[in-house]
């Protein structure tokens, strides 16, 4: 465990906390894409199939449980909570997740390290995670005024990805740890998707104005 990996996990955790904070204290999920949240729940459900079979560390198991529990509870809140669900921008959140899930599934069946159920599901989760933010970015672009918590949520998610890339470089240099090219490319694609958002986020922060993305 190096500082980049730990910071990456912590920013990831913080992004979830920011989102839960919005849901629990403001009782609002305005500006949050349910499609993206459902994709994340799918990512964790398919990636952590090994949670009870392959033990890595207590830290690892606890984090997996946290990501599983929080992603499913966020989806539940947005879909079923009496008050929270009313703030969901259903008309704006029109991205079809099947258009993302199906190509990822086909790609995972064709491009994988080992053709076993667990391995294909794991690869599938990497591909889905790479594009899971897209519905959220589309929704952000349609939202006139992006509130601070939503902006911070997406920023933290992007920071988590950027830190993971630094972590891979660091691990390669120090441990000669080899990151498989599937992980590397899907991680890189995922991080690049945030580049545009980062540009506008940092600008709005520097100029102290409300975050707004160009249409």
């Amino acid at each position: 465990m190096n500082i980049f990996r730990l910071s990456g996990d912590m920013t990831h955790l913080m992004s979830v906390i920011v989102l839960l904070l919005k849901i629990h204290t403001i009782k609002s999920c305005a500006g949050i894409s349910l499609k993206t949240q459902e994709l994340y729940a799918l990512v964790f459900a398919t990636r952590y199939l090994d949670i009870f079979t392959d033990f890595v560390s207590v830290y690892n198991t606890i984090m997996k449980l946290i990501f599983l529990a929080t992603s499913f509870s966020i989806v539940w809140y947005m879909r079923h909570h009496k008050i929270v669900r009313r703030s969901y921008d259903k008309e704006q959140d029109t991205f079809r997740h099947l258009f993302l899930i199906l190509p990822c599934l086909i790609l995972a069946l064709v491009v994988n390290e080992k053709f076993t159920f667990k391995e294909v599901m794991w690869t599938f989760s990497l591909y889905v995670e790479a594009v899971a933010i897209l519905p959220q970015l589309v929704l952000l672009q349609r939202t006139k005024n992006i509130d601070n918590l939503t902006g911070q949520y997406v920023f933290l998610l992007g920071a988590y990805r950027a830190l993971y890339i630094l972590n891979w470089i660091y691990r390669y240099l120090t441990e000669k740890h080899f990151v498989h090219w599937i992980t590397w490319i899907s991680g890189l694609v995922q991080t690049l998707l945030y580049a545009d958002f980062f540009y506008y986020y940092i600008n709005s922060w520097k100029n102290n104005v409300r975050l707004q993305l160009p249409a």
Partner: peptide, 10 residues
């Protein structure tokens, strides 16, 4: 290395 197959990241 042998570590290649250990999925120790989240």
């Amino acid at each position: 290395s042998k570590e290649e197959d250990v999925k120790d990241e989240l």
